[in-house]
């Protein structure tokens, strides 16, 4: 409460809920610009997908079971983050922490699978330097993985803030933006498995 109230009146003369709404809108605009970045990486991938330069194509390097496991981990983590959001509304900080921990572990599992997949590909001679197709693949999927990694760090930070400060107004406000970020990343993943993995494996 205090930090919101301290910053806001000087700027707009309005109370804390408006400050939260302004920040939510600012973060929403950031997500929209991020969506444009991802859309252009998708366009790059679509242009490059057949430029394999005699190297491996999608069906040689992608695994359906691993992709399915990654998809399920992210989808479940979206649900568990939703349950954390509901626990926030019910002001039960213990339950919020528990669901954030589950979300963190699911996200960590996703990143673990992705790192293993990337390492296997590089070891098999299908690294980003092999062909235009693989450069575009690693840029697109790697950018998403980097976002998820930052999301994991953010979840840890928020868990610490809840443990120390409790569910204060600024903490709840930040949690809502983390929720937007996390659900947004799951939406980007729908695009990745529908544009990159499934057509590649077909």
């Amino acid at each position: 409460m205090s930090s919101d109230a301290a910053i806001d009146p000087g700027i707009s003369g309005q109370a804390a809920p408006d400050a939260h709404e302004q920040r939510a809108f600012g973060f929403w605009l950031y997500l929209m610009s991020d969506a444009i970045i991802f859309a252009l990486l998708f366009a790059t991938f679509a242009v490059m997908v057949n430029n394999t330069a005699g190297g491996p194509a999608g069906k040689d390097v992608f695994s359906l079971s691993s992709t399915f496991a990654e998809t399920m981990l992210l989808l479940f983590s979206s649900l568990t983050f939703g349950l954390a959001t509901l626990a926030t509304k019910a002001e039960k900080s213990g339950r919020v922490l528990a669901w954030l921990c589950v979300t963190f572990l699911l996200g960590l599992g996703f990143i673990g699978l992705e790192i293993r997949e990337f390492a296997d590909m590089v070891e098999a001679g299908a690294g980003p330097d092999r062909s235009g197709f693989l450069s575009a693949f690693f840029t697109l999927v790697g950018t998403h993985g980097l976002h998820v990694s930052f999301g994991l760090i953010w979840i840890l930070i928020m868990a610490c803030q809840i443990a120390v400060k409790g569910l204060s107004v600024p903490v709840v406000s930040r949690l809502s933006r983390l929720g937007l970020f996390w659900h947004f990343l799951d939406i980007v993943w729908i695009g990745i498995f529908s544009v990159v993995y499934l057509p590649g494996i077909l």
Binding site: L64, T71, L75, S78, G82, L86, L198
Partner: peptide, 25 residues
Amino acid sequence: HGLRSYLTGFALALILTLIPFGLVA
């Protein structure tokens, strides 16, 4: 209501994921 909303979304998303993966598999 919130819980039902999340569970509905999750169930729909699960079905819409299983259909394309099932077809490819």
